[in-house]
Amino acid sequence: MVLDPAHGGTDPGARGTGGIRESEIVLDFAVQVRRALELQGFQVVQTRQGNENPSFDDRSATANAQRGAVFVTLHISSTGLPGTARVYVNSDLPPVGNASGLIPWDRAQAPFLGLSKAFGDLVQGFLAQRFKGSPDTSQSASVRQLRTTAAPAIAVEISSVTVEGRADLDRMAPGVADAIARGAAAFKPSYIVPSAPGALP
């Protein structure tokens, strides 16, 4: 499992009126998600451990260098109903030709869209049970981070930095971690790892 706490460094991401910074909260969320995944027996790699800001491609490269990885990027939104969580998978991408056996870097997600959707729906289902008002199924969006990731990949976005205090978001972290871990465990049997490694840069 590759966990991506979004933003970091000079990019704080979404900012709330009470000084809440998306980049800091997702890093704390990642710690709890990592623990929940490890309890399920998954090996976990993070795209950043501290307040760095790797590029989109660097983050994708972390996942693309693993064989049979599953990628989750964590976000906190600026809007939306506070206390809810949404899972996004990448919008449809033009299919890639496989004559060379290589996957174009800029459309690396294309062959994995079906798997991403299956994984996303599982995680969204568990999130909907925990956080009322969340959608029942994952949604599609042109998320830049997902496009270059050659693995089943989802974005999990929590609403939102507009909550009164950081504690409101912190209370959601165990539920989010549990939903991702249970989703990953449920998805694992259906994920047949391709024989070739991920996209080549």
């Binding site: 991401g13 998306e22 939104s77 600026s78 809007t79 949404r86 996004y88 042109s142 976005e157």
Partner: peptide, 12 residues
């Protein structure tokens, strides 16, 4: 624009 997938997608 407010940063976030949901707000940016709504805009586009």
């Amino acid at each position: 624009i407010p940063s976030g997938i949901v707000s940016e997608q709504l805009a586009v």
